[in-house]
Simulated scan of single mutants.
Amino acid sequence: MDTSFEVIAEKRDDQGKGASRRLRRAGRVPGIIYGGSGESAPISVLAHVLNKHLENEAFYSHILTVQLDGKRERVVLRDLQRHPSHPTILHFDLQRVSEDQAIHVRVPLHFLNEETAPGVKQSGGLVSRQLNEVEVSCLPKDLPEAIEVDLGALEMNESIHLSDLKLPAGVTLVELSYGEEHDQPVVAIHAPRVAAETDDEAEADEEEEAE
């Protein structure tokens, strides 16, 4: 992972909805840092700095560095609470990580060769994405920025499942740990709906003529 992120945080003493509203009016976002060997600590960060980080997809799946009271801690972004009607972050959760303990993090899927897949380029099919991210388990040093899904050999009416994904060393998919029945499709190529309906109608006409 070449990208790095550092978040400068301040401890906050006042808690509750009123205190959080005052923080947001002052241009800060309330949050909490927890986990690891340290105690949970209410914190806040500058809203415009956090929003800038959130524009980068990698921020959601990276090990972040939090600077708090002159000390640096390694964390992952565990949760974000957004305002339901406008793009405002109401609260965020950060979880400390340890180098020797596996973490569960959701990472994005990057789809490759969609336009050149045989099912699309040669057969005129449409790509149907079922998932845009997956939850992985790994040590912090092995956390991938994203997982690539290559459609370069995918034909019409074929799909790629979780078990087909090529994972970096040391990385496993949490969903697959629950059993084979959780091996859900990630992406597929299907015939366009109109074309599929036309084929069905043609088959029905042929059957009627045969009768």
Rank of each mutant, 00 (worst) to 15 (best):
D164F: 09
N56K: 13
A26V: 09
E133G: 05
D100P: 06
E73S: 09
L131T: 12
A195G: 07
S137P: 08
F111E: 06
E39N: 14
Q15K: 10
E73W: 07
E206W: 05
A191T: 10
D183K: 15
R193Y: 05
G70M: 08
S85C: 09
P42W: 02
R193S: 07
L151D: 06
N56L: 08
T3H: 15
K11A: 14
P144I: 07
V7A: 13
H110Y: 07
G27A: 12
A169H: 15
R72S: 09
L162E: 03
E39Y: 09
A19W: 02
I43H: 10
P87R: 12
H182G: 05
V171G: 04
E181H: 14
R193I: 09
E211Y: 13
V127I: 08
G36S: 05
K141E: 15
E201S: 08
L151Q: 03
S40L: 09
K17P: 04
G125S: 03
E135R: 15
I189G: 02
D164E: 11
D13L: 01
D183A: 15
A146Q: 10
D100E: 07
P192H: 10
L165M: 11
D200T: 01
E115D: 08
G125N: 03
L54G: 11
E148P: 04
T3V: 15
A188N: 04
S44D: 14
V66H: 03
E175G: 11
V186A: 14
L50H: 11
L167S: 06
A41P: 00
G124R: 02
R24H: 02
H161Q: 15
L151K: 01
L112I: 05
G31S: 10
L77N: 00
M1A: 15
V186E: 12
A117W: 01
A188T: 09
A188M: 07
E180W: 13
Q67L: 14
M156Q: 10
V186N: 14
Q122T: 04
R193C: 02
A169V: 15
Q95G: 00
I103E: 00
R74T: 07
E115C: 03
K121V: 08
L131G: 09
